[in-house]
Design a protein around this nucleic acid. Structure first.
Lengths: 142, 142
DNA sequence: GTATATGCAAAGCATTTGCATTAAA
DNA sequence: TTTAATGCAAATGCTTTGCATATAC
């Protein structure tokens, strides 16, 4: 597993300070940042980076397959750099907190032929929804 | 299984022409309409119905548990009146076409205790992503 | 030097909201 | 009669886009 930035350079990615900072902010295995959050963290290193550039860069990383978009619960999309190891997500329906999970039984999931309706299946996404410990305790929010 | 409108009346739902029309448009088992689409169909029966009312009504049906919101792929949410029978969805990543499916193995899915992170699990959503037959044939879109 | 990324501001789309009016119960 | 729903238009939140400028290669 080579480094993200190195992989990108190999793929002919034009490396600007903005792009490097976005890629750096997205390093790690349990990262699920919104575009705004990426922007905020990126600005700490590069104050003049614009939100539009963050969006452009994120979209590019997604289409390069280096980052996954996570749509779960309300609010903005989140961006997950961990595309190497298959995993699924657990989201709090109350506060939208998001976590990686490895469910059991997921490898035995499938669509029987008569349920495929002629589709070519690409992947399966699982979303576990629940209430996080913090929200379970908190009497105010819910 | 009583009728949706009857159930709603029993629950003290104030029955207006607008609400009745929205509920009628959402009858059926393989219905996945966007709010715009519901509005369009509703207007055929009741030309003066507003989009805001359609949104209000849909949200209410969702919080009453009579309709499920489906977020899959790009574009607007879709509304699924089939809450009686558990099912999952298959979406075309190219054209967003959406279908109900009953996967095998879904009943054996679960999060082992050490993967629950203190969450109380409410439900599991599965999304099968693929390419629909129409898009598989069509050389232009993709 | 040339192609491409950036920043800005404006536009876009889906959805929600405030408020005066209307209508269901 | 009272309480709640409607319609409108404006506001919101997230994301994309057009275009002139700047910059990586």
């Amino acid at each position: 597993m080579t480094d993200l930035l190195e992989r990108l350079r190999e793929r002919g990615w034009r490396l600007t300070p903005q792009r490097r900072v976005v890629a750096e902010v997205l390093r790690g295995d349990h990262v699920h940042l919104s575009a705004e959050a990426v922007h905020g963290l990126a600005q700490q290193r590069l104050p003049e980076i614009s939100l539009a550039t963050v969006y452009n860069t994120l979209n590019e990383l997604v289409s390069l397959g280096e980052v996954a978009e996570v749509t779960a619960g309300d609010g903005p999309k989140r961006y997950d750099p961990n595309v190497a190891e298959t995993h699924q997500h657990l989201v709090c329906v109350r506060c939208n907190h998001l976590l990686d999970v490895r469910p059991e039984g997921a490898q035995n999931l499938g669509l029987p032929p008569e349920e495929r309706h002629g589709y070519q299946i690409l992947d399966i996404r699982l979303l576990f929804r629940g209430i996080c410990p913090k929200c379970l305790e908190d009497p105010t929010s819910g």
